[in-house]
Amino acid sequence: MSDNFSRYSDSRLFALLREEPKTKDQAFAELYARHSSRVWLYCLKIMGDRQSAEDMFQGTFLRFLQSATVEREMSNVPGFLLRIARNLCLNAKQKMRPITTSLEELELPVEEHPVEARELERLVSTALDLLPEEHREAFVLQAYNGMSYKEIAEMIDRPVTTVRNRVVRAKKKMREILAPYLVDYRE
């Protein structure tokens, strides 16, 4: 049964979410298997802490499941999921007290030896917190979620040129933050 579901398109699986419970469960599990990683990464990187990310991640899929009770055309399931996640995350962050961290305050580990690849992943994640919200989101969607500038523009309802600016600025800022560590790689 599950093998059949793995061959279905996202749109077909989304339609099956309105079927009887067993079919719905299988369809949801298949969609979850396909798209949960990117939704998880988005929530994790945007929220910045694991607990909040878990709340937003679960809320996203619960919303998604709830939305499937209404018949509608669904051509882009991952985009729809990320849009729900984005709305949840942004609203949650609006309610949070803004936390500002300066570059000087940020405690990145002092490495005596060249940083390893895994450490660079961690450094990038940490440096994300220093980016302005809009730039961080653009960076996450482009780099972590693999979306093109055009796809991001459609998702956040902004011109492509704005998205380009945000992504490029985010990456330049990221490099500026990580410059002391990237030197190790060059040596």
Partner: peptide, 13 residues
């Protein structure tokens, strides 16, 4: 540097 940062993100992804 840009390539390294992209690679690090790709590995995590």
């Amino acid at each position: 540097d840009a390539i390294r940062i992209n690679a690090a993100v790709r590995d995590e992804t």
